[in-house]
Design a protein around this nucleic acid. Structure first.
Length: 303
DNA sequence: CATTACCTGCAA
DNA sequence: TTGCAGGTAATG
């Protein structure tokens, strides 16, 4: 579920569903999902604390916790390829031992049992589900959020007004080589992944293998605008959902039909000029070991 | 730079 | 059975 719009959608759902809720138990089914600290400290740190605020940074979700003794803590998540949160009610009467399996989900790696929202209600289970087990969770003091290496080296937020086209262009000028891998490395913008990179290159009429040093400032500004547009539209639609459901209650994102190249190999290009279709066929190539989708008519290779 | 590793499921 | 998947870190 993983690019900025999908993570933003999850963060918003979390905000509505778990803000203020208290964690009363934690189950860890795959130890490596907990990046830091040890599983025991992770459980001890979380139990008894409440979800206070929920923010997104790039593809990370940062949950600040309240309560407990000692330094205030933060729970941080990264979904990588298939991670996502889901919430379910623990209405089963046999809710004792295997509460984390309710409802049945083979892919739950970590589960958080939340105290009932109101007396008399059943507890809720917040599942961190992740088919491929690449997703990670961190529990660290809030004071260390900005120094966590994974967060420290992130570029600016694409949709933040303080991230101007100039900021973007000047950052890219520090690099040389193919534009796509540079854009995907998160250091000039945080949150752009494979789908929205391909869509933005298409909209900007840029071939993803073009070397940055061969791209003019003006073209980079256009690329930046297209990135913002694609991300903002996708956020409006609740993300793109490619494989699994992404909504916290199982609702998929609605942006998929708006994609113009990603996942459309072999189909006709959607671009029209003066009302006439471009006539090209979307092609799948490999750039920096990632599947890449282009229209060979709209996006010319340049050396 | 490119390749490999981390994992599992699914479609061809 | 092979290749592919929304990501990133580690290693030549």
């Amino acid at each position: 579920m993983p690019e900025l719009p999908e993570v933003e959608s999850q963060a918003r759902d979390l905000r509505h569903l778990v803000t203020g809720r208290r964690i009363i138990d934690v189950w860890v089914g795959w130890k490596k999902t907990v990046a830091t600290p040890s599983v025991e400290k992770f459980r001890r740190g979380l139990i008894g604390r409440r979800f206070k605020t929920i923010q997104r940074r790039g593809k990370f979700i940062i949950i600040k916790l309240a309560g407990g003794t000692g330094a205030p803590l933060a729970l941080i998540s990264h979904f990588r390829m298939t991670g996502h949160f889901r919430i379910a009610k623990l209405t089963d009467s046999a809710s004792g031992k295997e509460w984390y399996r309710y409802p049945a989900d083979r892919f739950t790696r970590v589960a958080f049992k939340l105290a009932p929202a109101r007396a008399g209600n059943p507890p809720d289970i917040l599942h961190f589900s992740d088919i491929r087990k690449f997703g990670r969770l961190w529990l660290i003091p809030q004071a260390k959020i900005t120094t966590l290496p994974e967060l420290r080296d992130l570029g600016p937020e694409p949709l933040d007004p303080s991230t101007t086209p100039t900021v973007f262009v000047q950052c890219l000028r520090r690099y040389r080589g193919m534009i796509k891998p540079i854009l995907l490395n998160q250091s000039c913008l945080a949150g752009v992944g494979n789908i929205y990179a391909d869509e933005s290159f298409f909209d900007a009429g840029l071939h993803p293998t073009t070397r940055v040093e061969k791209i003019t400032d003006q073209e980079l500004v256009t690329l930046f605008k297209m990135i913002k547009l694609n991300l903002a539209n996708a956020v409006q639609h609740g993300g793109s959902t490619v494989g699994e459901f992404i909504g916290m209650r199982g609702k998929p994102g609605r942006h998929r039909p708006h994609l113009r190249v990603y996942g459309r190999a072999g189909e006709s290009c959607k671009r029209r000029r003066n009302g006439k279709p471009c006539g090209g066929t979307v092609k799948r190539i490999v750039v920096a070991q990632r599947g890449t989708h282009i229209c060979p008519v709209c996006q010319k290779v340049r050396r």
